[in-house]
Computed example of a mutant assay.
Amino acid sequence: MITWIRIALIVVLLLVVTLVLLPFQLIGLAFDLKIRRYIPRYWHKTACFLLGIRIRVYGELDRRRPLMLASNHVSWKDILVLGAVADVVYIAKAEVANWPIFGTLAKLQKSIFVVREQKRKAGEQVNEIAERMKAGEIVVLFPEGTTSDGNRLLEIKSSLFGAAAAAVPHTPDGVVHVQPVALAYTRVHGMAMGRYHRPIAAWPGDIELVPHLMGVLKEGALDVVVAFGEAVEFRTGDNRKQLSLTVTMRIRRMLIDHLRGRSYEAL
């Protein structure tokens, strides 16, 4: 009974916050005002607080622009977590736009929806990403292309870095900064989360969204590490596969370190 009361309270409070922020975000979207970039961060911070997601940040967000964040992908919770620590915009699969709740929220954040199967649209989509980066927005890419079980980094697809290459000619210095980010879900209710328990935080994709969401609401108290690595400078003529290899190496190293608890040794 107490669990259901808690869930109801979370839903009501999140709805209230949404209704308060929504008019300002709609105005920002209608007139393409910069406030549309900042308001989602307050919503994500509130959502993480209400859901019991505690965030530890290691390293710093690169201050240089244009900036693309390349992160491993564990769950829909990654959106809340990254959105709570930085003013970002996401590159998402086109089908996300039709998801219940999350599709609407993605549209309100002006996510960039891509149709990977339709090559004729690829140029337009890459150009939109490049324009958004050129305008100073921080674009988040999940180069694995899908979610993992949270224990490892899946194969990174170098083709997804095409947006970084497309943005290079439009930058003043002829460079795009690609910063690796590792998301490691490490604890539940303050207890270290082993590899067999990490699926509590993960959403591999073959589990239906609503039951998984209810499980998270019931569980609560998740600790997640957001580790920012050293950014890679990508210039005209640079090789996307080399960029992919470098980003892969840095994300994997940070992910392994934090999953093994090395991030807590200094505390």
Rank of each mutant, 00 (worst) to 15 (best):
E95M: 09
L160Y: 05
G123D: 10
P100F: 01
Y185L: 11
L33K: 14
M214T: 01
Q25F: 06
S263N: 12
Q25D: 06
N72Y: 11
A231R: 06
V226M: 15
D78M: 08
I112R: 04
D78L: 05
P211C: 09
L15A: 09
K107A: 13
D87Y: 03
L243Y: 05
T236P: 04
I5E: 02
V168Q: 10
E155F: 06
A163N: 10
V74Y: 02
S75N: 05
R36K: 11
I2C: 05
V140Q: 11
A84G: 00
D87K: 10
R120K: 04
L14D: 04
L245G: 10
E265L: 11
P199L: 13
Q109Y: 00
R195E: 12
V210A: 03
K119A: 11
V181G: 11
V226Y: 09
I10S: 01
D206W: 01
K134I: 01
H258R: 10
Q118W: 00
G103C: 14
H177E: 06
R54W: 08
I5P: 00
L22K: 13
G162S: 04
K34L: 07
G162E: 10
L153T: 10
D32F: 03
D223I: 01
L51C: 00
R63K: 12
Y185C: 07
L61W: 08
L50M: 15
R132K: 14
I2Y: 08
W43F: 15
L141G: 07
L259I: 15
D149H: 08
L33Q: 14
L29G: 02
L105M: 13
W203Y: 08
A164E: 08
S158H: 12
D238L: 05
V12Y: 08
R132M: 07
L183P: 12
F142K: 06
L108P: 08
M193L: 14
L222W: 03
G83S: 09
D238V: 04
N239S: 15
T186G: 05
V20D: 06
L67C: 02
R41F: 13
H170L: 10
R41I: 13
I10K: 04
T46V: 07
P211I: 02
L105V: 10
V17G: 04
I207A: 09
A97V: 12
G205F: 09
P23E: 13
S148E: 09
V74A: 08
G229K: 10
S148C: 06
A30E: 05
M254I: 00
I55W: 15
V17T: 03
L222M: 05
S159Y: 14
R252N: 14
T3Y: 04
W76A: 07
V232D: 02
K45W: 15
M191Y: 06
I101V: 14
V11N: 07
A94Y: 03
L67M: 01
I79E: 08
R250F: 03
G150K: 07
A8N: 03
I101S: 02
L245N: 13
T236W: 08
A70S: 12
